[in-house]
Amino acid sequence: MTTDTHNERIANMTFASVYPMYVTKVEKKGRTKEELHQVITWLTGFDDAKLQQLINEKVTFKTFFEKATLNPNAHLITGTICGYRIEDIENPLTKQVRYLDKLVDELAKGRKMEKILRDK
């Protein structure tokens, strides 16, 4: 169970502070920044230019997901990330951040793109 403090900490983290870690994580495993962007675009609807703008503005995850148009299939992202079962997370923002974490994780683990992008 996530606590209010935990949820608040996630909400106030900037996307710009976590983004380089996402890039490093996927590139270390032989995936590309382009593939990372494809995954982020699928989840949020942001194109590369919008993503760069949000990074430059150093928006918090709260603002990042407020501006996002969440993919209607995002609810199909399940499993455990950072010790939490995604489908059991009650805070909507924390759940959305964990969706993103899970997609990045699957990309880094070499999962096929069509499996990561849950279009069915």
Rank of each mutant, 00 (worst) to 15 (best):
A49Y: 09
E34H: 05
V18W: 12
R85G: 00
P92D: 04
A11M: 03
I81Q: 13
E106V: 02
E87L: 01
K25V: 00
I40P: 09
L100A: 07
D4N: 14
A108T: 09
T60Y: 12
D48F: 01
E66I: 06
G79T: 08
V23A: 00
I55G: 04
K58W: 04
L36V: 12
P20V: 02
D48S: 15
V18T: 08
N56A: 13
E27N: 09
T14C: 12
I77G: 11
D88Y: 01
I55M: 13
F15K: 02
M113Y: 09
V104M: 10
T69A: 03
D105M: 08
F65K: 11
F65V: 03
K25F: 08
D4M: 09
L70H: 03
I116Q: 06
N91S: 03
D119K: 12
K29V: 02
F64Q: 14
P92N: 13
A108L: 06
D4Q: 15
Y19I: 07
E114N: 15
T94I: 00
F15E: 08
P72C: 01
L43T: 10
T41M: 12
I116V: 08
T63V: 15
C82I: 11
T44I: 10
E114G: 00
T5Q: 14
S17Y: 06
K50Y: 02
N91M: 00
T94P: 06
R118P: 09
D88W: 01
T14N: 11
H37C: 00
G30F: 00
Q53A: 14
L107H: 08
E66P: 01
E35W: 09
R9I: 02
R85T: 15
Y22M: 15
L100W: 06
T14K: 07
D101T: 08
V26T: 08
W42V: 07
Y84I: 05
G79V: 12
I10T: 08
L70A: 01
G45L: 03
R85H: 12
F15G: 04
D119G: 04
K62E: 15
Y84Q: 13
L76N: 13
Q53Y: 03
A74E: 07
Y19P: 08
T44C: 11
N12Q: 14
K95D: 03
L76T: 09
S17K: 12
Q52F: 03
K115S: 06
T32C: 05
G45Y: 10
M113V: 02
T3N: 04
E114D: 15
D105C: 06
Q53G: 02
K112C: 03
A74V: 05
T80M: 12
R111L: 13
G45F: 07
A108C: 09
N7A: 11
L117F: 01
T78C: 01
Q52H: 08
R111K: 15
I55T: 10
D4L: 10
K29G: 03
T60P: 05
V97H: 12
A49R: 08
K109F: 09
T24N: 07
R111A: 10
T63C: 05
C82P: 00
V97D: 11
V104K: 04
Y19G: 06
I40K: 06
E90R: 15
I116N: 07
M13S: 11
V39Q: 05
